[in-house]
Nucleic acid binder design. Structure first.
Lengths: 349, 349
DNA sequence: GTTCTCGTCTGAACCGGTTTAGGTTCGAGG
DNA sequence: CCTCGAACCTAAACCGGTTCAGACGAGAAC
């Protein structure tokens, strides 16, 4: 009479006239159940509107059917980064079809972050975790291994790792940006990099160094924390230089946007006097004036691949290294031919 | 020898020389346990490094110790919106101290979204959900109630709701923006609104209508889907008008940024000929040129309050209506005095 | 006809907690 | 000295699934 609580497997068993155990077998599609009995059980379950209790299943199988993503950044830096929403959408693409659930946590790197992993593992709330923003000699890898969780890293770690990795070749994007600028005649370039302890920031920087060396041109690199504030500051610094660069390759879009703001404030025409490229191909970059030339990564695809790889790992598959298609440079208005240099001595127009 | 699996409450009981039940009582700080026994049990638990299994606890208590947030937007629109990361950080502030966990899902409104709620409830994976981006006659309210989940709405619903709400007075922010522009002498304003089926977009629009009516000035409203693309298109439309507005109040920052791009592309000086205000006070807005005048909401605070309210509801508290501090207008360079009108007839400088 | 095997199904243990009914012990009150 | 109640504790049921040892029956092999 009172709120009939949801049917359990025992109710289904009673309705079908079989034992609990057999119901479990039938519902999980395991062999050893006569075809007609199976049909009868499924019909009974359907009739009663039975639905498995993940809680009970978790307890008896020892799996959580949930995976975690701990975003190790300060909220300010995340806020402006379009990567995670797209990435998470990709993860969902995969999880939703397999009954998994995504547990999200936000914690600044350090103590607090470690604590989050420990808590997640202690309560056995997740079966595995996605390690994003891989760091140099990332101690989370050993931590997650020690905690007995499955894992997948976004990018190939620089240390031994028992986990699968899913990577995108950031370097190709940066090289494309540099080549683009070089082909436009730029000879003094700069790179505004992310923090070198972040592996992908380091990769982008290395690719930049490599590309400019190959092209045989001058270059300077400034390191930042990826924030708009430091992106702006770094740009100011570069523009104050005696021989200011004529092209700046930013390690993310939000710094590029801030850099564009700095240039405009100084009255430096973009791209006539200064070309800028971003990284991530944020939607907003497309609507700025001039629109931002940027490197487009496929965050959503990355998310779904990482999710799948993690589920494979939870299921006991061997680690694998997955490489995603290289990012592509989207050329827009913020890059253009190098300005005619008003260099001393050579007074050419 | 072999991987000693984690200690259970039975191990603790054995070590302390008491029964399982008493251990449970002691660990949960319930009365009826002698002080020294309690101490002995706690010491034993500590010794063994015991940690509760949330799975087992879930099964026996019927609670999940997890809450859900289903973001009902298309990934593109989320990506550029800084609200959720900050909001989620706030939710975490509250959850992390109480051992709760946040389950995040992303689904475009409609079928798919409903399915996500049903799935979450069917598996009893969450105890409650946060309903964000409240809609007109939001059917999620009845759905969540029917599913037997606790809930909290972000904003006061326009229909009967059994849930607590946590709201911020968007209208105050929009009014502040309008008043600011009016005080600068603007007499033709426009509002680029979000979709009217989103309650907060509707509120902002209503506040705009109200504020311009009070000021007794001309105004026009264009509705969009909150995306940068439509923000840009709406701006183009307004600037094409015979009597183009001299001030535009955008319903979010990303449209304002796109609008600024449009103005710059047309060579319309901002703020000399056109003033713009955003909403959300995105970090990026601060670094544009000119920097964006915007309405700052406290997303993180909102998150922690909503989380707390939801936990109260899960614990059985009566619904409450919480009002957050009004947002404040942050004035920056994108707004300025109204241009001297080169109107026909009155040739005043 | 007996034995073996296979497929089908049952019953019970188990996962790791919580909760409740009831049993001891002890001191106070009569 | 006996009775009674409070304080403390135990044992067992319970949450809702999974899993495994073994019961049972039927057909095949001998």
């Amino acid at each position: 009479m009172t709120a009939a609580s949801r049917p359990t497997i025992a109710d289904v068993a009673r309705a079908a006239g079989v034992s609990k155990g057999l119901v479990s077998f039938a519902l999980n599609g395991r062999p050893g159940v006569a075809a007609d009995t199976r049909a009868r059980i499924l019909a009974a379950a359907d009739d009663l509107g039975w639905t498995p209790s993940v809680r009970a299943r978790s307890l008896s199988t020892g799996r959580s059917f949930a995976c975690g993503l701990v975003i190790g950044r300060s909220p300010d830096v995340i806020a402006a980064d379009p990567f995670f929403p797209s990435f998470i959408a990709g993860v969902e693409d995969e999880f939703s079809t397999t009954g998994q659930v995504l547990v999200l946590a936000v914690a600044a790197p350090g103590e607090e972050e470690t604590e989050v992993y420990r808590t997640l593992a202690a309560g056995r709330r997740v079966d595995g975790v996605i390690l994003s923003d891989l760091r140099a000699a990332d101690d989370r890898i050993a931590l997650v291994e020690e905690l007995g969780l499955a894992g997948v890293t976004l990018g190939v770690p620089d240390i031994r790792s028992p986990f699968s990795s899913v990577s995108i070749d950031d370097g190709a994007g940066v090289r494309a940006a540099v080549d683009h600028l070089v082909s436009l005649g730029h000879t003094r370039l700069a790179h505004i990099a992310g923090p070198s302890w972040m592996l992908h920031a380091a990769h982008r920087r290395a690719a930049f160094d490599d590309a400019v060396a190959t092209a045989g041109i001058d270059a300077i690199v400034v390191e930042t924390d990826f924030s708009a504030a430091q992106g702006a500051a770094a740009t100011e610094h570069l523009l104050d230089l005696d021989e200011a660069p004529t092209g700046i390759v930013y390690s993310n879009d939000q710094m590029a946007v801030a850099g564009l703001g700095v240039a405009q404030r100084r009255g430096i025409p973009v791209p006539a006097q200064l070309s800028l490229t971003g990284f991530d191909d944020t939607d907003i970059g497309r609507y700025l004036y001039p629109a931002l030339t940027s490197v487009a990564t496929q965050a959503r695809l990355w998310g779904s691949r990482a999710a799948r790889s993690l589920l494979d790992a939870v299921a006991g598959a061997d680690p694998e290294e997955i490489a995603l298609p290289s990012p592509t440079l989207i050329v827009r208005g913020s890059t253009g031919p190098a300005p005619h240099p008003p260099t001393r001595g050579s007074g050419r127009a």
